[in-house]
Design a binder for these strands. Structure first.
Length: 286
DNA sequence: CACTCAACCTGCCGGC
DNA sequence: TGCCGGCAGGTTGAGT
């Protein structure tokens, strides 16, 4: 899915439309959607029926809804997941996986997921910081107040890998995916295969600025949507595709120098760079 | 412990 | 038209 800006758009929608409401019924239409909830669909539904949603939170690409009585409904959108707020009489989506009705009889919450890489689970164990145990391994994201810049820089410099691999490691920094990694590296003029241990503190500080800038700009546009898969809770697409400088722009001119953007295979997907602004390092690290 | 990669899915697009 | 390969914004768990 969706990287941090797209997930934050969804979180804001949940905050607006479902916080304060009480779940009445839970219908799991596809077991794979709750595979992380190992106790199964009946347990999942039983823990949620009667629970009241007290907030809508996010860390990186994970979402969760804290519940009264002290549990939390966790969600990850994977590659194609959507959380939609729909009128009860809206036609059922082709890939509807879980459906929640709410006590006031108004709009209902639906989890729709074409590829089923995403999923939901109920957490019974919430840490002191309010983060469910299942998400404890996810690092803070760069837009969160608890993100520690110095700790991130030190951790990157201790690594022995390529900088893009580090950016995609959600236990180091969360919320960054293939699009925003490429966009931030272009802004910071860094090639994705630059060795982490050779990057200086100022260079990494600049990279953090680039990440925050591009994600904040994307959020202001409602996120990036190439197609109808990436939408807010009302099904509306964002407009940041226009703001992308390298991602998906193979052979188009770099907006800074005119050199054609290059696409390389990378970790079973793609990386986009400007060959001139982001020269390949002499000793690349994958 | 640090790191890498295949596997999990469905749909779409381009080439033959 | 149909079939096939390639590709898609992510995470995890097994393996080195």
């Amino acid at each position: 899915m969706p990287e941090l800006p797209e997930v934050e758009v969804v979180r804001r929608g949940l905050e607006r439309f479902v916080v304060g409401r009480t779940i009445v019924t839970v219908d799991v239409l596809h077991p794979r959607a709750i595979r992380r909830h190992t106790a199964g669909a009946a347990d999942f539904a039983g823990l949620l029926a009667g629970a009241t949603i007290t907030a809508a939170r996010r860390r990186g690409k994970y979402l969760w809804l804290p519940l009264e009585p002290g549990t939390a409904l966790i969600g990850h959108l994977g590659m194609s997941g959507q959380l939609l707020v729909q009128p009860p009489d809206a036609p059922l989506e082709a890939h509807l996986r879980v459906r929640f009705t709410l006590a006031d009889g108004g709009t209902e919450l639906r989890f729709v997921d074409q590829r089923t890489f995403g999923g939901l689970a109920v957490s019974a164990v919430v840490g002191a910081d309010g983060v469910p145990a299942e998400i404890a391994h996810i690092a803070p994201d760069p837009l969160a107040p608890e993100f520690d810049d110095a700790a991130f820089v030190a951790a990157v410099r201790r690594r022995r890998t390529g900088i893009k691999r580090a950016l995609l490691d959600q236990s180091l920094i969360s919320g960054v995916g293939n699009i925003y990694a490429d966009e931030a590296l272009w802004r910071a003029r860094l090639h994705y295969a630059r060795a982490t241990e050779t990057l200086t503190r100022p260079v990494l500080a600049d990279l953090l600025v680039a990440l925050r800038d591009v994600m904040t700009a994307a959020l202001a546009e409602g996120g990036t949507s190439f197609d109808s898969l990436y939408v807010d809770v009302n099904g509306t697409s964002g407009y940041f595709e226009r703001g992308l400088q390298v991602y998906g722009r193979a052979d188009l001119p770099c907006s800074r120098c005119g050199t054609p953007i290059r696409r390389d295979p990378f970790m079973n997907r793609s990386s986009y760079t400007c060959p001139r602004c982001q020269p390949r390092p002499r000793r690349p690290r994958w």
